[in-house]
Design a protein around this nucleic acid. Sequence first.
DNA 1: TTGTCCATGTAAAAAGTTACATGATTCG
DNA 2: CGAATCATGTAACTTTTTACATGGACAA
Lengths: 200, 200
Amino acid sequence: MDEVTVGILGYAILGLLATKPRTGYELAQAMKTPIGYMWTARHSQIYPELARLERAGLVEASVIDGPGPRDTKRYTITEMGLRRLEEWTDSPLTEVARSEFMLRVRCLWLLPPERAREFLLTQRRYYEKRRETYAYEEASFALVEDEVDDPSSPYFAQNATLRYGMMRVNDTIAWCDWLLDRLERPSSRRPRTGPNRAKY
Amino acid sequence: MDEVTVGILGYAILGLLATKPRTGYELAQAMKTPIGYMWTARHSQIYPELARLERAGLVEASVIDGPGPRDTKRYTITEMGLRRLEEWTDSPLTEVARSEFMLRVRCLWLLPPERAREFLLTQRRYYEKRRETYAYEEASFALVEDEVDDPSSPYFAQNATLRYGMMRVNDTIAWCDWLLDRLERPSSRRPRTGPNRAKY
DNA sequence: TTGTCCATGTAAAAAGTTACATGATTCG
DNA sequence: CGAATCATGTAACTTTTTACATGGACAA
């Protein structure tokens, strides 16, 4: 029996289970919004993947009682699962950067400045809300300060990703302001020389 | 005849064609690496999508001579394509943040500090290389300074995305340094001076 | 002559989203 | 008594990746 290949989704699940056992539903909740945890998945993806991981012997399920027509199962990571997760963690990584936001920004020159401005303000509001959520999360780490400072504690790693998220939203907001400023005063950087500026 | 629905990939292509006509190959080159342009696609995705866009009347193809067994086609965006692209640009946007890097970081607590350190240094080197590429790109904008300041010029928007990319790599490098420092001196209680602290 | 770049396509597989489906409990 | 939350699954569809396939031009 050779090693079953595990995809990113599988490792994302194993990563959550490494901290504590969870049900499929709890995993789905955790992966619904990327709070300090930059990955998302729906329950329709998670349940089949859990079954796969179980067949591969990387997780184990135990039936617990719960509501509904089906069994409620709590999944625990196995020794083997932990080993595979550890291997994956520092294996070579090549990432594909995908940002629909930047794709839109690249087309902003097509819009009249007022619409471009509105668009950026809407995005800015979105990132402000994220900042608030992150700030709220951040406060909860104050309760486990010792673990946050210990590199072998999951809180250490979790806190590091939250910091990254916080940095990102702050910078994105600052960038929005920078671009909004440039939109409002187009040629204020230098005295105008060329033709045709007054289009809008 | 009702409007054919266009996906992100379609708009990414239209966004590139809005600046100037290109062949499928040129589009594939442009979308291979996300230089100041945060989206990627392979030629196997681009060619069928171009055919779809053509059937929908959003782009037009003209055969030009070239090598190989098949015709070389140059695609131009149509008036209708431009209209659809403009509509899409500031339509409601909800983004899913996906970062395999942060997924790995969340598991760093499983690794011995030395391996965690090595992993972060490798990532840091990767982002340094990106920074160099961006710096190179940035220099080319100096040649079109007037357009960069004009919100109705594609260079304005392109430069804005490049700035965003540059900011991102700089901050990611700073964040790596912050975490490396925390890894090396685990439980020393020093004043909190993270990368996101009091910058803006 | 071997390899890389130009140039275009198709096929198969994997990953992700949306929709369908069931049923218990708890809160207003 | 209806809506939300808990809880698990499948089916259909879309998107993305990987692999297969062809062939000319040009350089080491």
